[in-house]
Design a protein around this nucleic acid. Structure first.
Lengths: 136, 136
DNA sequence: GTTGAGTCTGTAGTCGCTACAGGCTGTACC
DNA sequence: GGTACAGCCTGTAGCGACTACAGACTCAAC
């Protein structure tokens, strides 16, 4: 018999803001442990699962990959004496984010300039299409 | 018989910096027209194809989706009288880029603060893991 | 009893490539 | 002519991180 504080996947989804399909996906790939089941085969969750999934969600919001999240969860689970591991993961990710920012800012600059130059003239003269390259 | 300025896919890849597999992929999904073939079935390209693929590459570098690229190519092809269409596509894309920039900057801020706070103390106290959520 | 919402599994689709396997071709050298 | 080796071919499957079904079952309310 299920414990009385257990709830189904819909409630977990509601609580955490994580899509039901995504929760099942996380279980399938082993990011979340296999949930307990009711007699009818429904997944049953308990309050601790909300915390765990919120952790995943926040990490995802910060752009960590699922592989990173997996490692962070493992680190959070075992009470080892330092969080050096977590820091390394976060630092590496921060580097990636910063690299992406550089790329994206560059894109933004070029796009903004291009759009600004556009909107007058015909296609053969269109600065936007022209800046992408002349087709022969 | 192939024209004398024709070249194979490897040369096109070299010229444009686009991976061979990617070129074939673009052809498969109809982004590039089907290439002419040699007697032995090798794809044959001409200088105009370099220009076209460079156009695609630059658009991709600016973050346009392949669907956008397809539309931009179509607009560049027909010599219609205005480039309003191209401008609309670029403006919409610019909006997306800016939205992503906002997200990424937010990520960067939070991550940087978290990493900074981390690196002293044990896992139960780790500010990084703690900031993601306490697991029960 | 019946409706409707919730849940289940399994599979396939998305985007934009990338990486094979297994075979043919083209060229250079001996 | 033989042989090595690079280059090209098709077709399929994989990546990450979901998302969207189909078709079946269950649960709660009326």
């Amino acid at each position: 018999m299920p414990a009385k504080d257990a709830f189904a996947i819909g409630a977990l989804s509601e609580e955490t803001g994580v899509n039901i399909e995504t929760i099942r996906y996380y279980e399938r790939i082993g990011l979340l442990r296999k949930a307990a089941r009711s007699a009818a085969g429904y997944r049953l969750y308990r309050p601790g699962d909300v915390a765990r999934l919120c952790f995943v969600r926040r990490a995802r919001d910060l752009g960590f990959s699922l592989e990173d999240v997996r490692r962070l969860l493992a680190l959070a689970d075992r009470e080892s004496r330092s969080c050096e591991g977590a820091k390394k993961i976060a630092e590496a990710h921060l580097e990636e984010v910063r690299a992406k920012l550089v790329d994206l800012r560059q894109m933004e600059r070029v796009l903004a300039a291009t759009v600004k130059a556009c909107g007058r003239g015909t296609v053969p003269d269109c600065p936007l299409l022209g800046s992408l390259g002349r087709l022969t």
